[in-house]
Design a protein around this nucleic acid. Sequence first.
DNA 1: AATGAATGAGGTTTCATTCAT
DNA 2: GATGAATGAAACCTCATTCAT
Lengths: 188, 188, 188, 188
Amino acid sequence: MEKLNRRERKKILAQQALTEAAIRLFSEKGFSQTSISDITNEADLATGTFYNYFQSKEDVIRYAISVKIEEAGEVLREIKNSDDSPSNKLFMISKSAGQLMNRNISLFKLLAHLPPMTSPPHGSEFKDILTSIIEEGWRRGDYKKDLPAPIICEAFMAMLQSAMMSRSIPFEENIKLKLTILLEGIST
Amino acid sequence: MEKLNRRERKKILAQQALTEAAIRLFSEKGFSQTSISDITNEADLATGTFYNYFQSKEDVIRYAISVKIEEAGEVLREIKNSDDSPSNKLFMISKSAGQLMNRNISLFKLLAHLPPMTSPPHGSEFKDILTSIIEEGWRRGDYKKDLPAPIICEAFMAMLQSAMMSRSIPFEENIKLKLTILLEGIST
Amino acid sequence: MEKLNRRERKKILAQQALTEAAIRLFSEKGFSQTSISDITNEADLATGTFYNYFQSKEDVIRYAISVKIEEAGEVLREIKNSDDSPSNKLFMISKSAGQLMNRNISLFKLLAHLPPMTSPPHGSEFKDILTSIIEEGWRRGDYKKDLPAPIICEAFMAMLQSAMMSRSIPFEENIKLKLTILLEGIST
Amino acid sequence: MEKLNRRERKKILAQQALTEAAIRLFSEKGFSQTSISDITNEADLATGTFYNYFQSKEDVIRYAISVKIEEAGEVLREIKNSDDSPSNKLFMISKSAGQLMNRNISLFKLLAHLPPMTSPPHGSEFKDILTSIIEEGWRRGDYKKDLPAPIICEAFMAMLQSAMMSRSIPFEENIKLKLTILLEGIST
DNA sequence: AATGAATGAGGTTTCATTCAT
DNA sequence: GATGAATGAAACCTCATTCAT
């Protein structure tokens, strides 16, 4: 058991090292400017080793994103199941989503290098959670009923993204103001 | 004064042909899957000719975008100087921006392949016009004064972009609903 | 007559401009790093114009050298026909050859880029003059007769070249010392 | 300690094959007429393999020369430390230098294709040995003391080079005559 | 599982040369 | 004669991938 574990741990370490090296280089030099041997150099491994873990450069992105998605899912579900009001839940989601994405902004930009339609392998879960929060708001009579849920979801995500990208006003203040507008616009 | 002799005309045609071929192929096969000789083949020119007009594939994107920005500027200024109400102006802007971007959606997606920070070489003019419309709304007492102009601009642009990207609800209906939320949120 | 002359003069100017530009660039950036359009740019002419005067880059070298050879020939013949002693003539030749070559050192290095055997299209004239001076020395009983003339010529030219290339001792002093050795070695 | 495993041995063989192929082709077809894939074809390796060992064609020249310099150093030091008279040592040096350079004449001509000033990365060691021989001659009272050592060194090297380049008289005879002149010129 | 030299397809890029103006 | 855009062959060079160790 001991021996196997050590091996497994080493294996995982190599994969982690490769992933981190790749993401670092992708965001520093750009995706296509980064070669596989750049990545293995940065990870202090041999070129061939890359192929023990990944099929291609794109594969690394997919793997890295899936890890992040996993993490994010946990947090989202926790917020959804809390006792807060829908509007408060939206605030909390925006906050932690902002944090997550800020930390991984360069990673998400890399999605452009994957074949289209692969992009949001998770978006739906996010949307599902948002939708269920909005429906909760409807049930409680908080929100106007003449706006379709997808529109509200999209508007929410747009505000979120816009706040993250803003260069003029810091995220915290920014998202607070934008959510104010949004909630004002959808509340009864 | 449009006295271009044949040679000059041919030059312009060649550059146009290259640009159009490039954008077409980029969106069909993807940016990095498109080689320079793919482009010249499509444009029915020799490989070397590409380098008479551009330094690199990225260069074509920059050029194509700058042409579109030019066009968009014209329309924006016209709307700004019309006699409509601020909110109507915002609707009109969203409409024609939507049209422009819809027509060039594949072009804008290519921005991801340019080094970061190069992205909005025009954003400021757009922002200036939006800001002046919002200020007009303030003067007329249409909009709440406790929201900073940049936030409103950003929110507007976010709605616009989100409506353009939406896959669930068509742009026209989509942007109408989102602007409704926005205007409701910022109006007195 | 006037019109023709002006044309002819312009023609020659263009050829001179091209030659000078070429030699300048060859010695600055190296022969193969210099393209024909580099040359025409430097000469402020169009690419195609080059082909009105030369067949190739190598051709420019040949032309430039032939011009210099022409010049040098004049000086050599003058010295040969003067009333000085053979040894003095050798000193004078070394002096003016040194000056000429110093001024055109970069040009002579370019000979390496011409197909071999083309190299000294003039060497023979130089050799002839040296030989006739040595024979004059023999007739006057100045020089030992057991050394073949070609050896003395070669030795003289070697000293000359070596003095020109020396980095440790300036040419004037250098060639004086070396010729002293040579004359000591060949004198009776 | 020459424990090279098969991989290492193959590496060295590959680099040798490339170097030899390159030098052979450079002198057969000329430097700029030889492409990198010519070289790898001749060495029976793949094009890309060239770049595992060299940065450029110029790089091969540098490498090849440095190898020869290494070899020459051995011989020179041996002669210097022998029991012969200074003048005999000079003869022996001229002889083996002539042999070395004759064998590698085409290699030395390639120096013209390297950026200037790179040329003699070794000259100094050669000079040092010559100087010590001349000083030995002075101590023994063989040579005149009014000629600076650098001048004698330069003159010796010039004679050597000139004898190697001569087309009219074969090297052996040629260098014997020229050294006679030189020694006559510098001896007491 | 790790290594890294060899591979060679396929991209990028240059540039001598032509030729219509 | 001068121009300079177009040409396309031919060079350069990179790099994903393999495979013997």
